[in-house]
Nucleic acid binder design. Structure first.
Length: 571
RNA sequence: AGGGGAGUAGCUAAGCCCGGAUUAAAGCGCUCGGCUCUGAACCGAGAAAUCGAAAGUUCGAAUCUUUCCUCCCCUGCCA
């Protein structure tokens, strides 16, 4: 039985998990580096939907702010109008909020700062730290050098401040076509860090921006926008992923040259999950090619997909906390995520009986036309969930898997001559089967019941080895149930033979639509997105496609299945 | 000698900065047992780590030094 009070292990599970970013913050608080402030930000680019990797970042950034009494902003990194759309910002807001992100009124856009960024660019030109470059994209690439060789300085590098100022103003005024000129920082073409080889600050892009419309035809690069945005928002700890480590010197350079408030960047490892792809580009490809049914397909690792699948924000949050934050790149096992899902659902999901693949059971000695209402516990983990009544009658459905004509050893369920318990019902014993003469498939099982075992207990104390679930045929609701399996068949979907891509590892059996499922009548009118445990099967939630006439359930995750393991081993 | 990161049980990951108080945490996974009207949950036990390798410093090294190995990131006018 579960204890009603929070035990030590529950307190432990809420305790913050030590990580290096947190340690840095604790240090900074100790040395009063930011006057006791902790201010983070979650900075998605609105060019795709959020996925569970972003959830890790959200959890880190908002979690750290909350733990130390600070704040966390939501900021859209929207400096590239050609890839960004309002559909994405809407979904990001919804998803980040669903995950528990609370940014108060601090929702910003890098595009809010375009005017300021432009002024800062002018400031750097005036200081001789930036210049307008007339080189084409190809030429810039050629002159950049390689990993082992230094680059060459642009012939425009030493043009006068006045000329650069004039040209930059004309870039802004729209006098030049896309890609015709750029504004570049004057740093060091010989730097071993490619990001420091006179990086481009602004490029010409005659594209409509989702927020600023046609006001601008020059847009700042990420590097010239991100740190300054952090600075404007007085961010203390700017936490990003590992691939930006190389950018940190540039992040610092801009801030130092500008002489503005200095936030500090720290990098952590992005989340990888086995059997899962977490790349916006690849996820977008799955959507665009119709390999899944949209961003919120329940097989997708997107936040909207997980939500539709039936995940809870708490489960995701606990997972993120447990997975930790470090700088090692590896892949977390999907089973860890599923563990936290089941842990949460076990506490909150009402139990209910549903039969996915029905097999008719006729109880020969049960009075025809009789119906009894059996009392069933809604949630053994939560006494306050109460009980409900489930109708019992002469003809029932049980799971096809729960009857075997030739039971293997260790199979405890129903077979001819064996007695099992119908949960909250009666003990029944199988007496015979009816087969389809054409296919010799079992279509019906005949049983007898023991009237003394009503409710599921034998007064003589005799035991059965198994309890199975059932639904009264006359009272059952028909439903569609969608069973999901991993979207990919391999732990690392990117592990493919030469010349193929990750789609080669797509699991053809990732979706199994069961149309003839039978549900107990209490499920009638179950509200959208509500969650249940179908006893002995798993956790299920109502899909948005569901209607009163045609209920649709998603299997969120199956229950752990020891029998499946035993069966597999004996094969 | 391009630069930047990382290597602790199957996975994730504490500890490393400030060497000894840890028998090198913990969770997941795995194995076994108990309990049970869900083969679930729960409870208990267990296996599992030459701390990437080697050498050095030291009374003492996962922690300090050196060398080596492996993996990841960087040559977008993407973020």
């Amino acid at each position: 039985m579960n204890s009603p009070t929070a035990g030590p292990e529950i307190a432990d599970s809420d305790a913050p998990v030590s990580n290096f970013v947190r340690d840095i913050i604790i240090d900074d608080l100790k040395t009063n580096k930011f006057g006791g402030r902790v201010h983070t930000r979650f900075p998605p680019e609105p060019n795709g939907y959020l996925h569970i990797g972003h959830a890790k970042s959200i959890n880190l950034n908002f979690g750290l702010a909350a733990e130390f009494g600070g704040q966390c902003n939501l900021r859209f990194d929207d400096t590239n109008p050609s890839k960004e759309e309002t559909e994405y910002v809407d979904s990001i807001i919804e998803d980040a909020r669903w995950l528990g992100g609370d940014w108060g009124d601090r929702m910003f856009y890098a595009s809010d700062y375009f005017d300021q960024l432009y002024e800062w660019a002018v400031q750097l030109i005036k200081a001789g730290k930036a210049f307008v470059c007339d080189l084409s994209g190809d030429e810039v690439r050629k002159q950049r050098g390689t990993l082992t060789e230094p680059g060459q300085e642009s012939p425009y590098r030493n043009r006068t401040v006045e000329e650069s100022l004039d040209l930059f103003a004309r870039m802004k005024a729209g006098e030049f076509p896309d890609g015709f000129r750029t504004l570049r920082a004057k740093i060091d073409m010989a730097s071993a860090n490619l990001n420091m080889r006179d990086p481009i600050m602004y490029r010409i892009l005659h594209a409509e921006h989702h927020r600023t419309g046609n006001k601008w035809c020059i847009y700042p690069m990420y590097d010239f926008a991100h740190g300054q945005s952090d600075s404007i928002e007085r961010i203390t700890h700017s936490i990003c992923t590992l691939e930006f480590e190389d950018h940190r010197p540039l992040y610092n350079w801009y801030i130092e040259q500008l002489g503005i408030y200095h936030p500090y960047q720290y990098e952590f490892d992005r989340l990888n999950l086995t059997y899962t792809i977490l790349s916006k580009r690849k996820l977008l490809m799955l959507v665009q090619k119709g390999l899944v049914n949209g961003w919120d397909d329940p097989r997708m690792p997107t936040v909207s997909g997980l939500r539709r699948r039936g995940y809870t924000p708490e489960a995701i949050r606990n997972f993120c906390r447990r997975v930790g934050v470090s700088k090692t790149n590896g892949a977390t096992e999907l089973s860890l995520l599923e563990y936290f899902l089941r842990e949460d659902l076990n506490k909150r999901a009402a139990r209910v009986m549903a039969v996915l693949r029905p097999l008719r059971v006729v109880i020969d000695n049960y009075p025809e036309g009789q119906v009894e209402e059996m009392e069933a516990v809604n949630n053994p983990e939560d006494a306050s969930a109460g009980t409900r009544l489930v109708p019992f009658s002469r003809v029932l459905y049980i799971e096809q898997d729960d009857f075997r004509e030739d039971p293997p050893k260790q199979y405890f369920r129903l077979s001819r001559g064996r007695e099992v318990r119908l949960r909250y019902g009666y003990f029944i014993t199988a007496t015979g089967v009816v087969k389809d003469p054409a296919t010799s498939e079992i279509v019906e099982v005949h049983c007898t019941y023991d009237p003394a075992t009503r409710g599921g207990n034998a007064p003589d104390g005799r035991r059965v080895k198994s309890t199975i679930h059932w639904v009264s045929a006359a009272h059952a609701i028909d439903a569609e149930v969608r069973l999901y399996d991993n979207l990919f068949t391999t732990e690392n979907p990117d592990d493919v033979p030469e010349g193929q891509d990750f789609t080669a590892n797509l699991n053809p059996k990732s979706l199994d639509v069961v149309t003839g499922a039978k549900l107990e009548p209490s499920l009638r009118g179950a509200s959208p997105s509500s969650r249940y445990q179908f006893e002995r099967l798993g956790y299920f939630s109502v899909d948005p496609d569901s209607t009163t006439e045609k209920p649709v359930f998603n299997r969120t995750v199956a229950l752990r299945d020891t029998w499946a393991k035993i069966e597999k081993k004996s094969k």
